[in-house]
Nucleic acid binder design. Structure first.
Lengths: 237, 237
DNA sequence: GCAGAAGTTTGACCGGGCACAACGATTGCC
DNA sequence: GGCAATCGTTGTGCCCGGTCAAACTTCTGC
């Protein structure tokens, strides 16, 4: 573990409103750890011993139901907090966090949370904003699942991933971490099979370019139009 | 508007950890208002001028999509906060709040939030817990919509409503505010027609007892079994 | 008490997407 | 470099649940 360079994280929303002295004090309680690709940061149901800030890489948060189905809750990008169970009063992590790329995280012990909040109330307010935003996003997802066709949900999911973690290429935008059709199915509430079919269709139409655990959006704008199309509307008016 | 009796709200999660002096100071900034049945507390998209605590009655939070579909985000019961947009940094309410029964709410002006949080950091921590719990609930809802059949989703929704706002009768539990099939459809991501069909089936089996905007769960345990059944499992093993 | 509105029920139809299944492609391991 | 495991593609049949349509029931206001 090394001391984290304050300047790298000072601009993050989590630390908004904190002075550099304060920030240093907060960082002093954290340890950074490296998680290799495909390793678990924590498992669903385990004691919530820490909360985290992702410095580098990508982490997938997923939940498994009692009957064995899995769904992807979200992909966490650099600069985002995750595993905030301690802050919202949970004893156990409600989901599993897996590094999908080699990743580096900062971890604070759970016991530090009450102390930090007492000393720097801004931390609670900032975390509240983040959690509130995620609640909004999740509501959006519920709405999509209630009212949209599978094709539109996949379009939305890809656009969100591209926006959050897209890498610009000469001929499109690439999702810059490994993601399988199965993962997309678990994000959009459908099956691997349907995702595969739809992406194949899009590939033939030149909208995307696929590959194993790899997706490039060649025509983001056309995908956006697909996403906004009302169900049953074929767009040719 | 009258001064609120502190003892009535002192036990609420929102005020956990506050002394009675503190509580009085917080309450001094709020005004209570009565909203008759079917009136709107605020509309989706409107300026977020206040945040609220429900003292009495029931409020439905719903969202309308650009294409006109509506979904019910949640039902708010007495003692719960709602319309917390100001606390999570939103300028506008992301949903519409409608009193489904004659209701009484406490409202704080948005501008009071930063001041209150600075003075009583516990408020932010408490709100964070509430919002975090709602995020968990919403994730659960996403999982249900991804993995369960309509019948099971309706069963879960009714059980949740009964738990949150059930009134015990001699022969079952009644949801103690007016709720239509349409509302249930909008909570579970299905159509009014399907809800009606399923409830009719349950009524014939003696599981529930219906009526206009009224539902009594006569056999909560059997409904629970339905809810937990895996898709395709007919329960007769 | 009556008219209109709002909410509910039921039937017929049918299409999207899931289950099942088999094959093809890529990767990592030894 | 060969092999096994994983990941992805594609085809077929079927059923859940959505759409369309229409009648019925319960409430509300005059």
């Amino acid at each position: 573990m090394a001391t984290v360079n304050s300047s790298l994280v000072a601009h993050l929303p989590l630390f908004a409103g904190l002075g550099s002295e304060d920030l240093a004090e907060v960082l002093r309680e954290a340890r950074s750890t490296r998680y290799p690709k495909n390793s678990a940061v924590f498992e669903q149901g385990a004691d919530a011993t820490s909360f985290f800030l992702l410095l580098h890489g990508h982490v997938r948060a997923s939940k498994t139901t009692p009957t064995g189905e899995q769904i992807v809750v979200r992909y966490v990008g650099p600069g985002e907090i995750f595993g905030v169970a301690p802050a919202i009063g949970l004893q156990h992590y409600p989901a599993t966090a897996t590094a999908v790329d080699d990743s580096v995280v900062l971890a604070w012990p759970s016991a530090a949370w009450p102390r930090l909040v007492a000393r720097f109330p801004q931390l609670a307010a900032n975390t509240l904003q983040t959690v509130g935003n995620r609640l909004q996003e999740t509501h959006t997802r519920v709405i999509e699942m209630s009212t949209q066709q599978v094709e539109q949900r996949i379009a939305h999911a890809l656009l969100r991933l591209a926006k959050q973690s897209g890498r610009k290429l000469e001929h499109g935008v690439e999702i810059d971490f490994p993601i399988s059709r199965q993962d997309i199915a678990q994000m959009t509430g459908t099956t691997l099979h349907t995702v595969s079919r739809i992406l194949s269709g899009w590939e033939q139409a030149g909208l995307v370019e696929g590959g194993r655990q790899r997706i490039v959006l060649r025509e983001p704008h056309k995908i956006f139009l697909l996403a906004e199309q009302a169900a049953g509307d074929n767009g040719s008016s």
